[in-house]
Amino acid sequence: MRYWLFKSEPSTWSWDDQVAKGDAGEEWDGVRNYQARNFMCEMAIGDKGFFYHSQSEKAVVGTVEVIAKAHPESKTDDPRWECVDIKAVQPVKTPVTLEQIKADERLSQMVLVNNSRLSVQPVTETEWRIICDLAGITG
């Protein structure tokens, strides 16, 4: 199993929107960055991810699970864009902010710290466990 981080602007697609989709989940569509798309192509069913609210909140607010491998995005005819489907797993007890992540020396190599604009990015198992601990959840 691998770990990921999915960034979304809450005004466009929020944690509550994701939760409302239930076990059916939703396509993680609209990604128009080749590196982020390529990361989705590496994902496997059962991989876990953090759901991260960007813009003003800038915090991990929940965890998700990949429920469908990469496939052509249904909202475009452009064959370059693929996506995975994800479902909400659990909310965090305490949101973990970007400020907290940047301040934690153990997370200094995290992609989010060094490339905060990338909308889909890998997370190491160690980073996953640290953030889950900070968030008050078990991963």
Rank of each mutant, 00 (worst) to 15 (best):
M1N: 06
M1K: 06
R2K: 11
W4M: 11
F6K: 07
F6W: 10
K7L: 02
K7S: 00
K7E: 00
S8D: 06
E9C: 09
E9A: 07
P10D: 09
P10L: 06
S11F: 14
T12R: 11
W13H: 09
W13C: 02
W15K: 12
D16M: 11
D16S: 14
V19M: 13
A20N: 12
A24P: 13
A24R: 15
A24M: 15
A24F: 10
D29K: 05
R32G: 03
R32N: 02
Q35W: 01
R37E: 12
R37C: 09
M40N: 12
E42N: 12
M43S: 15
M43E: 13
M43A: 15
A44L: 15
G46V: 14
K48C: 13
G49V: 12
G49K: 09
G49Y: 08
Y52E: 07
Y52A: 02
E57A: 04
E57W: 02
K58E: 06
A59T: 08
A59H: 03
A59G: 07
V60Y: 13
V61E: 06
G62I: 09
G62Q: 05
G62T: 10
V64T: 14
V64Y: 15
E65V: 10
A68L: 08
A70N: 09
H71E: 10
P72G: 02
P72A: 03
S74F: 05
T76D: 14
T76E: 13
D77V: 10
P79Q: 10
P79I: 06
W81T: 12
E82P: 02
E82G: 10
C83Y: 02
C83P: 03
C83Q: 00
V84D: 04
V84M: 02
K87V: 12
K87L: 11
K87Y: 06
K87H: 12
Q90G: 01
Q90V: 02
P91N: 08
V92Q: 09
P95N: 13
P95A: 11
P95H: 08
V96S: 11
V96G: 11
T97Q: 04
T97S: 05
E99N: 08
I101G: 13
K102S: 05
D104M: 05
D104Y: 01
D104F: 01
E105C: 08
L107T: 04
S108R: 10
S108A: 06
S108N: 09
Q109G: 14
Q109V: 05
V111H: 10
V113M: 10
N114H: 00
N114E: 06
N114A: 03
N115T: 09
N115D: 08
N115K: 06
L118S: 04
Q121M: 04
T124F: 07
T124M: 01
T126K: 13
T126N: 09
E127C: 09
W128A: 11
R129S: 14
I130G: 05
I131V: 15
I131G: 07
I131T: 13
D133C: 05
L134W: 01
A135M: 00
G136F: 00
I137L: 02
T138G: 00
G139Q: 05
